[in-house]
Write a protein that binds this DNA or RNA. Structure first.
Lengths: 341, 341
DNA sequence: CTGAAAGCGCTTACAG
DNA sequence: CTGAAAGCGCTTACAG
């Protein structure tokens, strides 16, 4: 029969101390003498002790865990964000529990339920707002990235979408593009980027910005929107997609039409996801610095957790995005060379 | 001040029943009268009661949670697997906690620690074997996908790699390819696929199989390996990559060399990841049917959990893979048309 | 710096 | 079908 898992009581007996002392030693409480701490750690190691988190969760006031909700694992934009979050959390001894909203929603499960039922200390939402009632009041929440809504009382850390879009359009305009199609779709960040693009274009009467919308922001949507834009707008020489995944679709559409990128058509993404760096895409992209966004979101959340409810005014932090120029953008052709034309 | 969260005691008072009755009603115990169950559910709803999972974890014998460990979120092969696992788990009321080994390892954290400290009922490992000592003895483990090692006592559900590779080579041979470069790398599934390819080629003296190895199975590795293979082997007309991500690198290398796919060079992937279906790649790929693998792994794990330690002999289940033909493969050219040649 | 005691919110036998 | 009691393995005041 499998031996019962050792508990702190077993560790205490072996180390010859009380069980509270074991608890304190294990958690690195400074008020434990080095000799006893040493004895406790040795005993724990010898017994193969592993703390029962359910017990510590129940007894303690904190879970030392942060919940991270991402929208959809298929769009890899969140990877740098997650790396930033992890990097900020780990030094503080916090763990992270990851949930994806899309698949859970698909199955009728509440994506927040997991994190909430585990009594996470705080939540980082890298997803469109879910059912807000699911967020217990008083739970610190930071929204990471640009979202349509935010739960009441949540702080926001995101890239300055206006600045990012301006970088993108300046880049394209600088290359001589005068008619740009913007691929857009539903969701907070696509909406923010679309509005920023419209605002920027309004200030430049010499350029033309075409909007091409789809009901999704996936690669397929980018593919379809690009085909449509190029068919309807002969003057378009550059595509600015709402994200890298859509830009990937745009590259596919260009290839389908026999257009060379960037000689015949420039394509730009947004997110600086790992995809954009792919040798196959070499995508010029707006870099929201999502690793920094993640780091800042995690650090803000930590302050909210530590500071208690009052210490944290609801704040919005906007980070300055950058631009990563790769081979998918180049000088505008005099006139678009369509395969058909 | 934030109101204390309601507990089953509050629910019991409101419903006018004992707290154990609340517990039973909430968990759907059949031995509770419909009237009382109704009363309990109503009271819980009115109070906004949400169970404290830490408490139920500590008091109960099961966590109703399965841990899933994936290797690296950057390679999307695991997405269909995860969908299959979820689909099988949800109807049984089990939840899933997802961990990625790569990022955790990178930060010096034990990827299993989370799941284990939460006392998951079982583990699905879609990752290279980790530190086996971290797996508590007696914990049901199913390894999903072909992996080099497996924890002692773990069951395996995977695609039949031999059959998959045979499908791939038959496909290429049928198209007239007589010299194929196989892109390989470290790790269990790449190793299994390499060995299967070698075995299959050994039976066909009229074909030539070149191995091109890298120290990783990433897109960059596939890119580098392809450049090398095409430089060293003028007769190679097809690339068979160990996975879709490497095949993506191969496509990039082909483009770099000015080779058209599939007219000048055929490229094949493995995994049937979402990437392969991309309009930009349209990658012919071996389909390990990872959704089925995930479903079968979850169902086997459930049987192991329900059956207890003895009910489950260590078993290996191999599923028959398929082949998805797309545009990246085609008839072999008489002779490779190198951009330089 | 250390130990004895109470209690976190549930589930599980066990008695009715 | 229902209720009173014990206990899961920790943490946290609290007393020394």
């Amino acid at each position: 029969m499998p031996t019962r898992r050792p508990t702190i009581i077993d560790v205490a007996q072996r180390a010859g101390v009380s069980k509270s002392l074991v608890s304190m030693a294990l958690r690195g409480d400074p008020g434990v003498s080095p000799a006893r701490r040493e004895a406790v750690l040795r005993a724990a190691d010898q017994l193969g002790y592993r703390p029962n988190r359910a017990a510590s969760l129940l007894a303690g006031t904190r879970s030392d865990t942060v919940g991270v909700v991402v929208d959809d694992l298929r769009n890899p934009w969140y990877l740098p964000l997650l790396a930033g979050i992890r990097g900020a959390l780990v030094p503080h001894g916090l763990r992270l529990t990851l949930t994806d909203a899309a698949m859970n929603r698909h199955l009728g499960a509440d994506p927040l339920d997991d994190a909430v039922s585990l009594r996470v200390d705080g939540l980082i939402m890298a997803a469109e707002a879910l059912d807000h009632r699911a967020v217990p009041e008083g739970l610190p929440v930071v929204v990471a990235g640009t979202r349509a809504q935010r739960p009441e009382g949540a702080a926001v850390v995101a890239a300055d979408e206006g600045a990012g879009i301006r970088l993108a359009l300046d880049h394209l305009w600088g290359l001589g593009h005068r008619e740009v199609a913007h691929l857009t779709g539903p969701g907070g960040s696509a909406t923010a980027r679309r509005e920023a693009a419209e605002a920027a274009a309004a200030e430049r009467p010499d350029v033309r910005l075409t909007m091409e919308g789809e009901d999704a922001t996936t690669e397929e949507a980018g593919y379809a929107a690009t085909l449509r834009a190029l068919r309807d707008r002969p003057g378009v020489t550059a595509i600015l997609a709402a994200n890298d995944v859509m830009a990937m679709g745009a590259l596919a559409a260009a290839r389908e039409l026999g257009l060379r990128v960037p000689e015949d058509l420039s394509v730009m993404g947004h997110d600086a996801s790992p995809l954009a760096a792919s040798p196959l895409l070499r995508l010029t992209t707006v870099d929201p610095r999502n690793d920094d966004v993640g780091r800042a979101a995690a650090e803000l959340l930590l302050r909210m957790i530590r500071g208690g409810a009052e210490g944290s005014p609801v704040e919005t932090t906007l980070l300055r995005p950058g631009l990563i120029a790769r081979r998918s953008t180049g000088a505008a052709p005099t006139r678009r060379r369509d395969a058909a034309g």
